[in-house]
Write a protein that binds this DNA or RNA. Sequence first.
RNA 1: UGGGGCGUCGCCAAGCGGUAAGGCACAGGGUUUUGAUCCCUGCAUACCCAGGUUCGAAUCCUGGCGCCCCAGCCA
Length: 563
Amino acid sequence: MSEKEDPKKTNFIRPNFIRRIIDEDLAHGRHARIATRFPPEPNGYLHIGHAKSIVLNFGIAEDYRGTCNLRFDDTNPHKENREYVEAIKEDVHWLGYAWGERLYFASDYFEQLYGFAVELIEKGRAYVCALDAEQIREYRGTLTEPGQESPYRDRPVAENLDLFAHMRAGAFPDGTLTLRAKIDMASPNLNLRDPVLYRIRHGVIHHRTGDEWCLYPTYDYTHPISDALEGITHSLCTLEFEDHRSLYDWVVANVSVPCRPRQIEFSRLNLEYAVMSKRRLTQLVDEGFVAGWDDPRMPSIAGLRRRGYTPEAIRTFCERIGVTKADNLVEMAMLENTIREDLDRKVPRAMAVLRPLRLVLESYPEDRTELLTVPNHPKDTTKGTRPIPFTRELYIDRDDFMEEPVRGFKRLVAGGEVRLRNAYVVRCVRVVKDRTGAVVELRCTHDPDTLGKNPEGRKIKGVIHWVSARQAIAAEVRLYDRLFAVPEPGAGGRDFRADLNPASLHTLTLCFLEPGLAAAAPGDRFQFEREGYFVADKDSHPARPVFNRTVTLRDTWSRKTGG
RNA sequence: UGGGGCGUCGCCAAGCGGUAAGGCACAGGGUUUUGAUCCCUGCAUACCCAGGUUCGAAUCCUGGCGCCCCAGCCA
């Protein structure tokens, strides 16, 4: 069994139907080399569904030693802009892919596209139509009834040519004229009922061509030609374009392009408790439900990055979910497992108390400070050690103490013992409360003979983390949860916004971190022991550290207790 | 009720006529100064249903059923 066939190896390449098609094309000598492309429209930020496509397209190019172009599909100036172009480039790059010199824009082909349109007109395969939008819809027919031919369908070639030239020259206002392919108004495939190839758009500034054009080609016309011009062999897209394939093939067959790429469709990624359409994502940003495209709750690449996800984990996730044509809804647990797995092995540990409760060691000298040497990783000794101060007054997490413990609780209880992680075993001798009865402080004693060794004659079940009060760094910690409260937001015709999880963000403003964390730079990742994985946010400063929780640790205890 | 797709474990997904991979999740056990990690073990007599072909069918054929997509001068 070769490594590529063994699923246990990390470089295992999951077979999928697209790779099989490519293998077959190669076996039949249909291509000298493989060329794919990732063709985003710059009208929004990339999300994890795009990552699936990026990993697929760039991954195939890598494995077959071919190429993958980054091409912006910018044929609708109304919705597209440079900010998105730059953000998309950053995201693809961050994910670990390089397009080198192969950066393209569909708008770079506008002149050639225009030429091919003239060719179609000359061949009698396209015509200038004067039906307005509503009329075109009426003439198109319905799903079950054929359409009617446009009265302009048989306009003479010379007249079409003249009109088309005048359309380009700006002689007609928006919406008056379109260039349409002459295919078949009775086709059961609506996409073939004389689809619009060009529309008129005055007064919009295209992010690259400015006001040079008032005529813009449609996706169905632009995409196949762009692919052909770039020598793309396999044009991979999502399932909703399946019906467009015959039009794709028609365009490429009726115009003098250098080659005929093959379009193959796969199903898009759906993730539980998330929305994945640019329209909805844009809405969340524009309507202020999130703080921006990089809000850590967003499934956008920028959001996941700020949340603390690594590009490696995202790529692994995309490989694990596979590529098929079946509708799917991937569980959040799948994504979370991938990031935990990656972070567990590469990230240093640290101690941070999120909900502080003061703990005073009555048996420990007031003026004493011990510098304990603790490992940065429990299994990877190459990650070294760090010193942590230990003093009489500490903070522990409120959740690690219960005056009246529930069954199975193995942390600190009144009169009980617990191990302070990396330090001593302590016993709680007194619980201090305020007038309302709330616990405000724990008085404890420590067993000096338990540093780096277990006590004699008794077994300590629990281990809790802590931070020395005097040296602790006050910090803000943002706890994120799923953005939506239901697995399929908007299902059943509901407004997806009504499904937002009101508790998707908890901001803890007074957390205490071990002193070393003050030096963390934005983007630095840690495991706060027993809490989860965290990343220093871009809002973080040495004077005021801010950490985002990427994901919690797997927690079989709170699951058992229903917490 | 037109056309295009899809239906294999709770989720994702291999399989392509020779007798159901793997991952996630879950359950149990072991190690453990993170209730983490790690390590074992278990987890579809069964592949939407019904017929048929075959020595043999998840894989082929026929007929059903269910779900998704399409009537933008969006992509």
